[in-house]
């Protein structure tokens, strides 16, 4: 059952921001609805107003330039990410991570903005975006700010977003040619499932980064390592960044072991 709420679908960005300002904590932005409507159905969230972001041009579309890198509208769906030629070619990790989310039906709806704003520790675009050094553009009637993805997540399902703010775009800096990447997601079945553990690694000539999902209150990324860092060094850095818990999906012990397994598996494949 969904409780009663009103649905608003502004067409202009400024209207959206005004509505957000007006309804503030009573409002939720609606993108694909694949997280929000589930929360509402379970009664864990009871907003009075849903404001649809999907009709706002500034929230849609994917742009790329060699100078500014990739800019992904918050309302871009997983399928749009997976199918976009530039994303596939230059940010294959992102396309891959988008393809890890849910089922075909879900990926047709689920958006990058929704995935990041839900800020679940298991968000598949979370650890991959961290590894890619993403930054998040937050907009409100008060203005715009851009913050590193790393600072965006603040706790389990908590972010820097203020009540009147929306994520408009996510930026990814250009990754130098020759960069390598890999991602492993541990699931309980082969069909669609949330990550029990996920590890994403990217390596350029400058740095090596490892991001981990489902092993801390938020998706995390370890401090940059030198590109030739050993499995041991990467593992140490990763273990320092995480603090998994025992829950219904897995034990802390198993998660720790799998993070190590994944690093040991991914790293050699990057050479």
């Amino acid at each position: 059952m969904l409780h009663e709420f009103s649905y608003l679908a502004p067409r202009e960005r400024k209207d959206l921001l005004q509505l957000l300002k007006k309804h503030s904590s009573q409002a939720r932005l609606l993108a694909g609805g694949t997280d929000l409507l589930c929360e509402i159905r379970l009664g864990t969230d009871r907003p009075e107003v849903l404001i649809d972001v999907k009709n706002i041009a500034e929230f849609r579309g994917i742009a790329f330039s060699e100078q500014d890198g990739l800019a992904v509208g918050a309302a871009v769906t997983c399928v749009e990410l997976m199918e976009h030629p530039v994303v596939r070619k230059r940010f294959p990790l992102l396309a891959h991570a988008a393809g890890q989310i849910g089922s075909a039906q879900l990926r047709n709806r689920a958006t990058i903005g929704g995935n990041l704003c839900t800020a679940s520790p298991c968000a598949d675009l979370g650890c991959s975006s961290l590894v890619l050094g993403a930054r998040v553009e937050l907009v409100s009637a008060r203005g715009t700010r851009v913050i590193p993805m790393k600072d965006f997540f603040t706790g389990v399902k908590a972010t820097q977003l203020k009540d009147d703010e929306a994520v408009q775009r996510v930026f990814y800096p250009v990754v130098a040619a020759g960069a390598k990447w890999g991602m492993e997601k541990l699931k309980r079945i082969k069909g669609h499932d949330l990550a029990v553990v996920s590890v994403a690694i990217a390596r350029t000539t400058q740095w090596l980064r490892v991001g981990i999902g489902s092993c801390a209150p938020t998706p995390v990324v370890a401090a940059d390592l030198p590109p030739n860092a050993s499995v041991k060094a990467v593992t140490e850095a990763a273990l320092k960044a995480i603090d998994p818990i025992d829950d219904v999906r897995a034990s802390r012990e198993f998660r720790l072991a799998m993070v190590q397994e994944f690093i040991a598996k991914l790293l050699p494949a990057l050479s």
Binding site: R188, I189, G191, H192, D193, V248, R249
Partner: peptide, 10 residues
């Protein structure tokens, strides 16, 4: 979400 059943991929 946490009681999985087999899908076509399983």
């Amino acid at each position: 979400t946490d009681n999985k059943i087999p899908t076509s991929l399983d």
